[in-house]
Amino acid sequence: MSQHEITLTVNGRRHAARVAARLTLVDFLRDELRLTGTHAGCEHGVCGACSVLLDGRPVRSCLIFAVQAEGAAITTVEGLAPEPGALGVLQDSFCEAHGLQCGFCTPGMLIAAEALLRRTLSPSEEEIREAIGGNLCRCTGYKQIVEAIRIAAERLGGANLAPGTDHG
């Protein structure tokens, strides 16, 4: 029942809001900030569609109450694009390799892949599969998603960016 004042940063922008304790982070992002790229799927931590980066680490935003994100820096799928209307290398690779069909799991897959590629630009197939192991896709059979991430890693590796660089 309690209401709480929170301030947090989402995709580099600071927000202050008043939230009910029971409001999940995914609902806050979608309904309050209107950032509807993050998808609410199962809402109990199984499907991974709601994955976001919290202080750089991938987490499920349906399993965090917004009030708990006080002071945190969140990156949603909208934050992966270099600018509105454009696609980053990783997103582009998903298009090219047919790493999506219906698109419902895609934001979560992109966040999981982004977290992996911030850590390494030469992931093994095993590492890629481990990184997206918490994300369900009912269309692709995962093969094209793994391929998309491999292609993105190759391209980003070729670009010779410093590790941790925002490669949007």
């Binding site: 919290l54 991938p58 987490v59 499920r60 999981a112 918490g134």
Partner: peptide
Amino acid sequence: VGHVQTRNR
């Protein structure tokens, strides 16, 4: 234990 996302939290 769980997945990357759940182990982080």
